[in-house]
Design a binder for these strands. Structure first.
Lengths: 233, 233
DNA sequence: CTTCTGTCTTCTGTATACAGAGTACTTGAT
DNA sequence: ATCAAGTACTCTGTATACAGAAGACAGAAG
């Protein structure tokens, strides 16, 4: 790490800025958790991960503490951190809170969102439909999350967006593994279609209803894919 | 700066366990922020605070990262952490999210809470009324928070309770300074009276209504006490 | 008097060192 | 062969050391 660096070469983006190490480690750890490289319940070996990431334990531990407050890992005294494993009940509860937040945000969005922002959501929606038709699950998934975040953002409530983002982050892994069948995917797309129409019509009641239905269905879809997902309870 | 520091950390009863240092530092820092010892916008000098608490910078920095994820402090690259200063809009937004959460929780509580738990809330309420009649503002304040947390807990949704607790934590300082006048205090008590009655009657609609009113009023009460509270925006 | 610049101090960010608890392995007895 | 106790290794938690950036200050130039 403290090698004699030759400074006449630009090294376009290889170099990690001192001040961005924390963020960099955070993102790497989140990815490792979400992508299942660090499975739920597994311990985070600081020495090993630090070596793997090329940083010492000090900033790594700080990042782990940050993740602990985010709820992605759990701190166990004298035994370090383990990747948090969510049970079915916990997942259901989180999805219910997300539902509550999105319904409120959606209702508010119909009242206060400006037209340009709604057009922005429509564009995301069209892109997502495109991914659906091409069978591009990964980008569909990403756009799906982006759309939900965007709708929440339309409400113009920073705290609401933040809380929503945090919960969505925790569920990323759970939803990441869920490869639902064709008909479930189709119904999800259909719900999204209703959603964007309600939004464009600024029909708050319909928006709230369809969001409620969508999130309830989301839970059902997740639950069915939850058999051996290492989720106790 | 490297003076022999007198260990005046908690030391509540004898020995501090190795594994509890993290929690101890966290609580101390939270207290220092909530009680205004570290005013909003001020930088956290790691050396100074570490000496004051009798710990080295390493565990202190880890606690600061944790608080950053909680939203109590803000990390500024190469400049450390500063106590987060909330503007009026941010406070209003947070209170709105709390309102949303409490209304949902209150509604659900009327459906699923068991009788004993409701009796528990009633006891807290009676204690709070007692504090009101004795003019004991500090304990009134604490019981007030406890009651709201308890009502949310009645819904039996861990994620909901956690999100609610986090937001309430952030607002602790703001509400801590708010010394409202007699008539405002009286109306708050009156709202709480409605609240407990609605809960005992398991009247979900009324519960949601009174909670909505109570939280809206809470914002008004806070706003009026927000003049020179160092809150930009 | 103002402003710019070079230097010095202070503080953050990271790495390394060390002590103690946890974990696994080995050895001995039943 | 199984189980228990002792031992050695591993890993966490904390302290200290060090490099570099930010901020403060003083002196010189305009």
């Amino acid at each position: 790490m403290t090698q004699p660096v030759q400074n006449d070469l630009p090294l376009p983006e290889a170099r990690i800025e001192r001040h961005s190490l924390h963020e960099a480690i955070l993102n790497r750890l989140r990815d490792m958790i979400i992508e299942g490289h660090l499975p739920p319940g597994s311990r985070l070996n600081e020495g090993q991960i630090g070596a793997q990431l090329g940083v010492s334990r000090t900033p790594l531990r700080e990042a782990i503490k940050f993740l602990a407050s985010e709820g992605l890992v759990e701190l166990i005294p004298l035994r370090g951190a383990v990747v948090k494993a969510f049970g079915a009940k916990e997942i259901q509860d989180m999805l219910e809170v997300i539902r509550i937040l999105e319904q409120s945000a959606g209702t508010r969005a119909c009242e206060v969102a400006n037209d340009d922002a709604i057009v922005g959501v429509r564009k995301l929606h069209d892109q997502m439909i495109d991914c659906y038709q091409r069978g591009d699950r990964l980008n569909y998934y990403k756009l799906n999350q982006a759309i939900h975040s965007a709708i929440v953002a339309l409400a113009g409530n920073e705290a609401l967006s933040e809380v929503h983002a945090r919960l969505q982050m925790r569920l990323k892994r759970v939803r990441f593994i869920g490869h639902e069948g064709a008909e479930k995917w189709a119904s999800a797309v259909s719900e999204h279609q209703d959603m964007i129409e309600a939004l464009e019509a600024r029909d708050a009641q319909r928006m709230s209803d369809v969001l409620g239905r969508h999130l309830t269905q989301a839970w059902i879809r997740v639950r069915d894919n939850l058999e051996g997902a290492g989720a106790p309870g």
